[in-house]
Write a protein that binds this DNA or RNA. Structure first.
Length: 492
RNA sequence: CGGGGUGUAGCGUAGCCCGGUAUCGCGCCACAUUUGGGAUGUGGAGGUCGUCAGUUCGAAUCUGGCCACCCCGACCA
């Protein structure tokens, strides 16, 4: 297999696909629209999970697990939610196969084994969870419930793309129940902050925090908060959402609690999630034509050591020093891989680790042994220098932090450069086509205008930024008065 | 679901028009020489040419059906 990547300039989507496949993150499977996440890709996802899980725990949440299947009657209970997801649901109708009487090698669905009630494979779990919460909540003393689950969900998308939109994907979904509206809204916003914190400080991807318009809102939510990221090609990617669900699910599933003064009230709800789609955000934020670039804080391997030697004796001498360095780094909680495979040559390893985005590479040869040095290379800048082995662990610790910061700053600068204020529809269309990116413009606040703009330009309102400055203006489309700018973009 | 395209070894391909059992590169295996940016040489393994049927003495090649995948659109909380 050739390791050559298609360049971004040549074909951005092909480049993306190449990285996913060639950096060993994931592959197409035998199942339409479903991918195999390979060990290296899963390793990155695990790093994301670990960081997020700790953040969830630190904000008082606990993990639980709910069923994959949702009886249709429960699924349809919350009307808007059901309607929103209905057209992309996989449905289980039978529970048994049998040998085909016409061909003993084949199996057919046993028509005798039809389910009384169909089971929907969860596209999201509000229904089954709120049906369960009904049994958990009687009094204000039972609240709040702050539960998260790590799970897979299925959404039968018409067209799929590795990590960005797959028929089955992995995610976490938090589902919380509260006594008051205020508390639920506070939770919704708190989790949005957690997501923004994670995506910016761990993934080094800058985001815009905001609220979705009614059109773009989660089916069944009163408000959807989101973080939006800008990719290298000028398209936006929704990186996470946090929903204030009001009392919609409590009403649909009849979940009430008794207040301190003995009154029956419906419970207030939130849900929030991020998925393996974050892998797509990661790739499209930092990677280059040489391959993946992973921020140190979520890199499965932060430092790789490549020995350069002649013969077994040479390897032994180099290995001794390599192991010393490895131990020193590990003592600082830096994850190190010593790549002493004797089946590949150094040049091959350099290229491979570059393709896979390992943040820092150390090369040690016999020349270095004489000088007490190593060659230190950083993936983000593709630069290298010769440094003393003395104190290398501190130097690398600093370097990893520098790389983390550098990646964020570069992505931040790009996002800012790709954000443009416009005041006319002509300008709006021109920027979308020629410059791309976020376009900040006045909008009259109506779904009709939003819909028209989407039809004509394929741009959607990504969000109304939080703490958005209020300024008088006129809608670029309708010319009606507006009080604030919103962010438009073409999106993934 | 509409429009377009492609199916030949693990991957990428030539051959197809004009029918005679398949070309090349990468990768793979063995051995040797190598090892500071994707090594070289020698030898070797690997293919029911997407699938089913038809035409023919003979089909990767011609004809028809089917299937899969890709791209564009529709769709995408």
């Amino acid at each position: 297999m050739s390791k050559e990547l298609t360049s971004r300039k040549e074909d951005y989507s092909k480049w993306y696909n190449d990285i996913v496949v060639k950096a060993d993150l994931a592959d197409h499977s035998a199942v339409r629209g479903c991918m195999v996440i390979k060990p290296y890709g899963y390793g990155i996802w695990e790093k994301m999970q670990q960081a997020l899980d700790k953040m969830f725990k630190d904000t008082g949440h606990v993990n639980a697990y709910f069923p994959l299947f949702i009886p249709k009657s429960l699924f349809e209970a919350e009307e808007k939610n059901a309607e929103g997801f209905a057209k992309e649901c996989a449905v289980v109708t039978h529970y048994r196969l049998k040998t085909d009487p016409n061909n003993k090698q084949k199996l057919i669905v046993d028509p005798e084994a039809k389910l009384e009630e169909e089971l929907v494979v969860r596209p999201t779990s509000e229904a089954i969870i709120w049906n369960t919460y009904k049994g958990w909540i009687q009094s204000y003393r039972d609240l709040p419930i702050l539960v998260n689950q790590w799970a897979n969900v299925v959404r039968w998308e018409m067209r799929t793309r590795l990590f960005l939109r797959t028929a089955e994907f992995l995610w976490q979904e938090g589902h919380t129940a509260h006594a008051t509206k205020e508390e639920a809204i506070e939770e919704t916003k708190k989790m949005l902050e957690v997501y923004a914190d994670f995506v910016e400080n761990w993934m080094a991807v800058p985001v815009v925090k905001g609220v979705k318009t009614a059109n773009e809102r989660f089916a069944g939510a009163d408000d959807t908060y989101c973080i939006e990221a800008m990719m290298q090609d000028g398209k936006a990617l929704q990186a996470g959402t946090s929903h204030f669900l009001g009392q919609n699910f409590a009403k649909a599933f009849d979940v009430k609690y008794v207040t301190k003064d003995n009154k029956q009230e419906y419970v207030w709800a939130t849900s929030w999630g991020v998925s393996t789609r974050l892998m797509g955000a990661l790739i499209m934020s930092h990677s280059d034509d040489n391959g993946l670039v992973i921020p140190p804080k979520i890199a499965p391997t932060q430092v790789v050591i490549v020995p350069i030697y002649k013969g077994d004796a040479g390897l032994e001498k180099v290995s001794k020093v390599a192991h010393e360095i490895k131990n020193k780094l590990q003592a600082k909680n830096i994850s190190v891989k010593y790549d002493d495979r004797d089946t590949q040559r150094p040049g091959f390893k350099f290229a491979e680790h570059e393709l896979k985005g390992v943040p820092v590479r150390i090369a040690i040869g016999e020349r270095d042994l004489e000088n007490g040095t190593v060659e230190l290379a950083r993936r983000d800048e593709l630069s290298k220098e010769t440094v003393s082995i003395e104190g290398i662990e501190d130097r690398i610790e600093t370097l990893l932090n520098d790389i983390q910061t550098n990646l964020f700053n570069k992505a931040k600068a790009r996002t800012e450069a790709l954000t443009t204020k416009v005041d006319s529809y002509e300008e709006f269309k021109k920027v979308l086509d020629e410059k791309t990116g976020f376009v900040s413009a006045h909008w009259d606040g109506t779904p009709e205008t939003e819909e028209k703009i989407k039809e004509e330009t394929k741009a959607t309102i990504r969000c109304i930024p939080l703490n958005n400055p209020q300024e008088a203006g006129v809608c670029i489309y309708s010319g009606k008065p507006s009080t604030q700018r919103v962010l438009f973009a073409r999106a993934y």
